[in-house]
């Protein structure tokens, strides 16, 4: 594959192929940022891939107390799914089971959009008739009595149909340790980009997948072309000096945010150079026929 070179790191002349998704966002607040983060982490646990989790979700950013609706520290969470129905179901279940239950929590809309999903409007029934609706200006909230006081939840949150899922960079290094160092640097850099999440554990996927399988019923299976232990199988995409591969999958509310995140991730790994980080950067695609969004690495190299 033709390659570019940046700071000694080889960059494939290829592209990440991403898909249109439905997405929403909520802001979780709590008496302390620790508890806001806890609720957000619980809500976004088991939300790495739509293949098996129903949605992809993660923490976008922390929000200072003076910028949240109720003046307490908060965390913004993004959720992505393939259909509005599934997104509504995942939002309702995850906020209901993980945020409503978390001490001192409250939940607000994290996205303003013309189309809306039910938030408090779906969860209010937990109040069993004791719930109270309050409207201040154009915002409506539900107050649901709970054992530590009240769970306050905005009635709705925004839905966007122009979100993008599956932006990615594939980081290829000499060994597992250096590749992980580079991946961590990329994730840290992407964390500063607004409106994106990296849904895999710690933002990093080690089991990148291909579509399909030799076994019936499996929609995805290991990406054998990028497994270093299969370099001799005949269809490997790896060079002789590559000993470990990690992938960073990026979901964003807009194509521009995904591109910004990929650019940030590439810049961070390139900055490390081949000695401390990785030797090569690639991206996952399906030949360009499945996903409408193509993010070419050559356009994103610093």
């Amino acid at each position: 594959m033709p390659q570019l070179n940046a700071n000694g790191v080889r960059i494939d002349d290829t592209f990440a192929e991403a898909f249109a998704m439905r997405a929403t966002a909520v802001i979780i607040t709590a008496p302390a940022v620790r508890w806001a983060r806890q609720a957000a982490q619980t809500m976004t646990g088991f939300a790495t891939s739509i293949i098996g989790c129903g949605c992809e979700a993660g923490i976008d950013c922390e929000i200072a107390a003076d910028a949240t609706p109720d003046g307490r520290p908060g965390v913004r969470v993004l959720l992505f799914a393939v259909s509005t129905t599934e997104l509504q179901k995942q939002l309702q279940n995850r906020v209901g089971q993980c945020v409503l239950t978390s001490p001192g929590s409250a939940c607000y809309a994290g996205l303003e959009a013309e189309e809306e999903l039910k938030l408090g409007n779906a969860l209010r029934f937990f109040g069993d008739g004791w719930q109270i609706s309050k409207r201040f200006g154009d915002k409506r909230y539900w107050r649901v009595p709970v054992m530590d006081g009240e769970f306050v939840c905005e009635a709705t949150t925004g839905l966007t149909k122009s979100a993008v899922g599956g932006g990615n960079i594939v980081l290829m290094g000499a060994d597992a340790q250096k590749t992980l160092v580079a991946a961590e640097a990329a994730v840290a850099s992407i964390a500063a980009v607004p409106d994106v999440i990296v849904p895999f554990p710690g933002g990093i996927a080690r089991s990148g997948s291909k579509v399909g399988s030799k076994y019936k019923g499996a929609a995805a299976s290991t990406n054998d072309a990028y497994c270093p232990t299969l370099k001799g199988c005949g269809r490997s995409e790896l060079d002789a000096d590559i000993g470990s591969v990690l992938e960073i999958v990026i979901d964003g509310l807009t194509p521009a945010s995904v591109a910004a995140a990929m650019r940030a991730g590439i810049a961070a790994t390139v900055a490390l150079g081949p000695e401390r980080g990785i030797l090569r950067i690639g991206a996952g695609n399906y030949g360009g026929k499945l996903g409408p969004h193509h993010f070419h690495l050559k356009d994103l190299v610093p």
Binding site: P69, D70, I132, K134, K139, Y141, G149, V152
Partner: peptide, 8 residues
């Protein structure tokens, strides 16, 4: 100390 009063 009602949280909804912060919104109010």
């Amino acid at each position: 100390d009602l949280l909804s009063n912060a919104l109010m």
